[in-house]
Structure formats: structure tokens, C-alpha cells
Write a protein that binds this DNA or RNA. Structure first.
Lengths: 236, 236
DNA sequence: GTAGACAAACATGTATGCAAGAGGATGGAG
DNA sequence: CTCCATCCTCTTGCATACATGTTTGTCTAC
């Protein structure tokens, strides 16, 4: 097999991580614990605790924790245990700013590009009659995320998409929490519809400023809910 | 392994690991091997090979390799060895585009911001007489990188800086190679000086378009050199 | 000669044991 | 009581042994 063919074959193979792997299991469980505030920001814990609780040895636990560390969820203290990364609202502001930068770049590239096919598809979800709208707020949150992800994907730069994914994932620590009211759902529909229309008309500037306002609103909302949820978790 | 052999192994290191951690050592060595084309894109290797060569056990090797996998340098094949990620020129184009997005955002934020102190510091390096300029091309490449990193840092968004760092690092796989001529060094001085002056005058649009041209030039140069080096490495 | 079964070699995945260092507990001196 | 040296416990870092699955080469049947 030639070098080139070999390289091709490598790309064709499925990703290394198998779903059934213990490392993945530990990784997912610990991440869920962090997301759902069973592990609070600042909490300390040890590899053995996790290993005992999940009934595996320390080896896969270590690999999972190092992965989480690399992604910024936990810290390792040299020979002195692990801790959940404290909440840092400044960081979240920065993540939102970064997110806006990335999505704005995507919007501009799309408006300059030749093809709006992938954007057109969004019409089926966001430009629909009231009766066809989703009302469940968790489901709506997922749709919202998909909207933004689709836009970034449409810019056809996988590296941009990868980074955007990372940012979204870290924001999702709070985002994923249930939204208290449904009024953001309606507003989201309105705002997305406007952005979408601007995109379809290739009005980059308009789309960007709408996007900026939309993300700012979202940021403020998420911030408010997070503080509330965090306080509630702390008291129990 | 006996104590004496272990001591020898440690002394064997050319650089001497700064952090005593074996994981870091393996991580750095393997990355260097990839950077310097001792490990070619598409090459396959095993954990044991690396462990034997670096005189450590498989445990730190595995942690280092998973780190490299997470960063996109290598792939793990389930129970079937590892391989170096194949070169993908499309990916590099995308990385350069992303880099431009990030740096442009930084420039705009700086120009809108209140404080140019960190930018002023760059004058000491880039706005100097010809006689004070660096001529060594490797050293110049490092200075060039520092220029861009400083700009991003000055935007005061650590998340933006982190992502930018990632992107730069992945570009550096090729960047780090020796530059064939020195003429890019002089051009770099000129271009950086112009960008710097625009920044100091808070001319965001000017700075951005200069930056874009500068990065485009760099991209073209790096691409050319990479293809050349890669072909040379493949033939040996 | 060819196809298929099968086993040996080998790769990673996981568990476990030991070593080294960080941090708190303890006890004595002031 | 306070302070400091010392020890002891606990934690991670690393090495090694074992488990599990993949690949590959060989041997046999046809």
C-alpha cells in the first residue's frame, strides 16, 4: 500500500474512541456530573473516588480526567487531587464574545459565497406558521443551537466549525439547564427569522448586527439563569 | 529498570525535560518528531515503540499520545496502533482563514479599546533601525509569531487567545521549518511596521486589510516551502 | 492453485502494585 | 497558647502484568 493510499485509508476509519470503552463511560459520567451540578465548581475529588463509584480501575479514570482537563472542565493538582474548574463569569463573557466573532465571520463568508443551499434548509424550521413551532423549551434550545451550528457549517471551514463547537460546548454547561420560561422561545423564533431573511438576501451587515443583538440577549438570559441555578445547587 | 539505567536515560535527553513529568517529555519528543518529519504524515507506530525508544513505560506514552490525538496530530486505531495525521492542505488553508478571523477581531477590539499600552511595546521590536533588526530567519519566525500573539493578547480575551494559540500551534507544524531565504524577513519587518502604525493610529480598517495581505503572503510562502520539504522527506 | 479455518503474534484496553511528594496531624519546645 | 519540626497518610505518577480483540500468516481441504 502506498503512502497516499494508506493516508486515505486512515481517514476512512471510524474514530478511535469506541462507545463501549470505559474511558468514554467515565468521561461522560463525570461531565454529566459537572453539567448537572452534582459536582459543584470548586469541588475537590480524587481518582479513586471516581473509580470506586463507577466500578472501574484508576487507569481509565485518569485518561478521562486528563481529557476533561484538556477541555477545561477540571484541574489536576500535582499529587494532591482534582477539582472542578470554578465558575468564571468573565470567562463566559469571553466565550460569548468569541462565539460572536466566529459566527459573524461565518455569516460574512456565506453572504460572499456562491451557495445558499444549506441556509435555505433552515427555512423549514424557522420560517413556519405559529402552529408548527416547537414549544418545549429544552427542545427549542437544541433547535437554537442547531441553527447557529448550521450557519457556521455553511461557511465550509471545518476548523472554524470545530472551534465553534468547542465554544458552544463550554457555553452549554449553563445553556443546557432548563429554561425557566417560554418567552425566550418566541423571541428566538422572531430573531432567527430575521437573521435568516437577511442571510437569504445576502445582507451581511444586517445579518451581523441582528446576530449580535440575538447573542447578547441570549448571553444575558443564560447568565441570569446560571446565577440562579448555581445558588440553588449551593444551598442543597 | 535499575536506578543507574534510569539516571542514564534521563541524562540522555538533549534538552532535558523542563518539567520532570515523563508525560510532558514524551509529548514534546513525539511532537518534535512530527514537526521535523522524523514521523511522516500517515506513518504508523505503536505505543511500545515509543516507550522503548524514550525509555519509559507505556503509561506516560499513552497519556501523551491521547493528548496529541485530542489536538489533532495523531490517530488511534482501536487495538491496532497509531498513525500520524496525514497532511491536509485544505485544513491548512482553513486554519489560515480562521487565524485571520481571530486576529482581525483582536485588531478591531484593540482599536475600539481605551488602552494601547501593550501595542506600544511592539515598537521596540518592529520600529527600529535596520542595524538593530534580527537577520536569523528562525529567530525572525519566532519574533513574527510573538507579534501576532501579542496583538491577540492585547484584545484581552483569554479564550480568544487560547484558540488563537491552538491555531498557531497547528500551523507551526510547517512554520517551524527553516525558511529557505531571508527575503521574507525583510518583508515581515515592513509589513509589521505598517500594521503597527495603523494600530497606533486606531485605523482598524487599514490595519485589518494590511493584516490580511500579510497573512496571505505568509500562507503562500509556508505552503510552498511545505510542499518542498515534504517531498524531500518522502524521498529519503 | 485457491479458499477458508485457525492459531499465533501483537496491539491496545484495563487493573494493580509500588514510588515519590504534598499536606495535614501530632507532639514537644518556648 | 503558639510555633515549628517531624511523621504519617493520602494522592498522583509511573511501571508492570493481564485481558481482549485484530491482524496476519499458515495449514488443510478441495
Amino acid at each position: 500500500m502506498s503512502k497516499a493510499e494508506e493516508a486515505e485509508a486512515v481517514l476512512d476509519e471510524p474514530q478511535g474512541s469506541i462507545a463501549g470503552s470505559r474511558v468514554d463511560h467515565v468521561y461522560n459520567r463525570v461531565k454529566e456530573d459537572i453539567f448537572d451540578f452534582r459536582l459543584l465548581p470548586g469541588d475537590r475529588f480524587t481518582e479513586s473516588q471516581v473509580a470506586d463509584r463507577l466500578k472501574v480501575s484508576r487507569t481509565p479514570v485518569r485518561e478521562a480526567l486528563y481529557r476533561l482537563e484538556r477541555e477545561g472542565y477540571v484541574f489536576v493538582h500535582f499529587r494532591n487531587g482534582w477539582s472542578v474548574r470554578p465558575f468564571d463569569f468573565v470567562m463566559f463573557e469571553n466565550l460569548y464574545e468569541l462565539r460572536l466573532v466566529l459566527e459573524t465571520a461565518a455569516v460574512r463568508k456565506i453572504c460572499d459565497g456562491p451557495d445558499l443551499a444549506r441556509i435555505e434548509e433552515l427555512k423549514d424550521v424557522w420560517l413556519v406558521a405559529d402552529a408548527d413551532r416547537v414549544v418545549d423549551s429544552l427542545q427549542a434550545a437544541e433547535l437554537d443551537e442547531a441553527f447557529h451550528t448550521t450557519i457556521v457549517d455553511a461557511a465550509e471551514n471545518p476548523e472554524l466549525a470545530r472551534v465553534h463547537n468547542d465554544v458552544i460546548e463550554r457555553i452549554r454547561i449553563i445553556r443546557r439547564l432548563d429554561f425557566t420560561q417560554g418567552y425566550r422561545v418566541e423571541r428566538t423564533y422572531e430573531e432567527h427569522a430575521k437573521i435568516l431573511q437577511a442571510l437569504l438576501r445576502r445582507r451581511a451587515d444586517t445579518a451581523c448586527s441582528l446576530l449580535k443583538a440575538h447573542i447578547e440577549e441570549s448571553r444575558a438570559e443564560v447568565r441570569k439563569i446560571t446565577i440562579h441555578r448555581l445558588q440553588a445547587a449551593r444551598q442543597s
